[in-house]
């Protein structure tokens, strides 16, 4: 998905203006002239500078506003990305309830199917991957992966 310089310039010009407006409303350090707002204001200035430069060159070149690459036009590929994003969202919202191991199995299994791995192979690999991750991170490296509904494994 390629945007033209004009579009990028316009988006970041807006972002710069919003950032500046936001920064103006930040509270000051009592008795100090410089505080939380100083740095974001300077960044906003930078955004505006860069986007004006991009707008200038973009308008001169007159590219189309948005170029979709072949991959994006392919609905299957696009659906694949959507599924990937949804799988990560699934982890974010359900890992605490379900526990790490079931969530991880579901995610990896779905990903394998998406990439057309044989389902039998996929389920074995998914279970194995979840157990290995659990062992390595929780047991060896003491990362508190969520238990959820799964009881603590013997290791």
């Amino acid at each position: 998905m390629r945007f033209s310089d004009t579009t990028i310039g316009a988006v970041f010009l807006l972002a710069g203006i919003l950032l500046a407006w936001y920064s103006f409303n930040l509270p000051a350090i009592p008795g100090q002239a410089y505080g939380a707002a100083t740095f974001p204001l300077l960044i906003a200035l930078g955004f505006v500078g860069c986007s004006v430069r991009l707008l200038f060159s973009g308008v001169r070149q007159g590219e189309p506003w948005l170029v979709l690459s072949d991959e994006i036009k392919n609905p299957r590929a696009l659906a694949g990305v959507a599924v990937t994003v949804l799988l990560v969202l699934f982890y974010i919202f359900f890992a605490d309830v379900l526990g790490f191991i079931p969530t991880a199995i579901i995610i990896t299994f779905a990903m394998f199917l998406l990439l057309k791995v044989h389902p039998g192979k996929a389920i074995v690999l998914a279970v194995l991957a979840a157990l290995v991750c659990d062992f390595v991170f929780r047991t060896l490296l003491l990362v508190p992966l969520p238990f959820g509904m799964i009881p603590r494994l013997p290791w």
Binding site: T84, L87, V88, Y91, F100, A104, I107, T108, M111, F112, L114, L115, V117, L125, A126, A129, A130, C133, F137, V143, L145
Partner: peptide, 10 residues
């Protein structure tokens, strides 16, 4: 790739 994804999540 699926393995990388789960590894990244962890």
């Amino acid at each position: 790739m699926p393995l990388i994804l789960i590894f990244c999540i962890v």
